[in-house]
Design a protein around this nucleic acid. Sequence first.
DNA 1: AGGCCTTTGAAGGCG
DNA 2: CGCCTTCAAAGGCCT
Length: 585
Amino acid sequence: MPQLNGGGGDDLGANDEMISFKDEGEQEEKISENSSAERDLADVKSSLVNESETNQNSSSDSEAERRPPPRSETFRDKTRESLEEAAKRQDGGLFKSPPYPGYPFIMIPDLTSPYLPNGSLSPTARTSNKVPVVQHPHHVHPLTPLITYSNEHFTPGNPPPHLQTDVDPKTGIPRPPHPPDISPYYPLSPGAVGQIPHPLGWLVPQQGQPVYPITTGGFRHPYPTALTVNASMSSLLSSRFPPHMVPPHHSLHATGIPHPAIVTSNVKQESSHSDISLNSSKQSDAKKEEEKKKQVHIKKPLNAFMLYMKEMRAKVVAECTLKESAAINQILGRRWHALSREEQAKYYELARKERQLHMQLYPGWSARDNYAANQQGKRKKRKREKQQAESNEHREYFPNPCLSLPPITDLSAPKKCRARFGLDQQNNWCGPCRRKKKCIRYIQGEGSCASPPSTDGSLLDSPPSSPSSVVPSPSSKESKPQTEQMQPLSLTMKPAHQPLHHPHLLAGPPPPSLVQLGNSAAARKTPGASSHNGALEHGDVSSSRQPGSSVASSMARSSASLCHSLSLLPNTSPQPLSLVTKSIE
DNA sequence: AGGCCTTTGAAGGCG
DNA sequence: CGCCTTCAAAGGCCT
């Protein structure tokens, strides 16, 4: 790859991307050069990792509110600045200010919000997916969609099983199942966790809708044991499920709010049933439930990016009028990289908490469970293996700088110890992290995350947004506060990276994302076809999974969306379309 | 009807 | 222990 060795700054742009597992060896070589940049990213993420549970107690709210990012611009390269600016303009202010003061720690659902009940607030609400919902007329937190954890659970069309009775069969309007006295918060357990208002939306009973449908059956592990159910929920469950399927009262969460992650394959069907059907065929239902309970699986907690996507998708849809998730995700992916680290930190932290909560709710759960379940049910098969291989090849062989796009996917952001200490300090990593396994420190969550003795500053301090709140474990972040200031910030390595690697692009090349977008839609249609030229292939580079060629029809489609998307993309130049068309042709 | 696409991040399995 | 794979969300598109 023609990479300009512009020095540290240059690499900065790509650091996070370069961290991909695959290239780790190389990375290490470059670490010295890139260490600063990598640290930036790592920093952001590390801050999240570092956050100890103490955080939970801290009033992050206030912190979040005053999240004025006094980030040091000095660390950014100009490219990045321009990108961000463009992003801001394009975003329509997405990045300007946190629309959600107090987020992410306080997520008090606006029970009065008309949006919550039907999930219309959710950008992706299927029932109204055509309507670009924008936002928070009622001060609803933009992340509110996140709160739903899964739209599925909140859309009238497919409420969680346990909500059946909560949905008016006729109107489809969900009715708050939980008594008003129930705390909006989701005290996980009598323990420390329960004391913390969970930042995750799904913890909060929105409109009384439990986000995590409790499907009592089907768990390989008694996940629900972590939950406690209130009387109403208990009765609800009892009514819906045979006694044996209903978790012991004590086992349910006090709020009775099931974790949204629990999903049954028949959610929609159940929603259609409603309580009415319950009366007629409880036994038959029970049998069905039993059968289906096997299909139930607990979803993985959303990672930072997923949370971000959930939040921003609606905006992107509204702005771009794009509906294809693939295209939207591309935009979001780029935006994600364009986010300031403070902003990303929010999501990382949110994701971290979500994972924590998830772990607490489902102690025995493992992502592997879903995998296995899918394997059995042959839920779906992915072709990534092949695609990845192809994409890799393309990277190698189609390095056309002019058309090449900045590799988006290649970066694997540092995680856990990796994020905290960076590759150059693997000695400080916990064993599992060294093996790219689950971070022990992180899992332990608490002070165990204490930052290593290293003073290199690899660990960046917490995002300004929540310095105090975010810094749960003094040891972790505080240990290396200086780093942040000393290290160049490069969360958005990609934008910076791209120009650096391909200077000529600066002149006005189509933003990679543009090309990607154009190709992506089209490419899909002719997955088998190989790109006509390196440009296309290279576009794939950014998204390793994108096939190269495109069809005219698809092009037309994609072009429309592309036009919209262009405005969103940073460094957008007026010419991207030509490139797209070119590739297509 | 179901899978694919697309993104990043997390995690587990395999060699 | 590095690499690979899958899954998480989402909605239009394709077979």
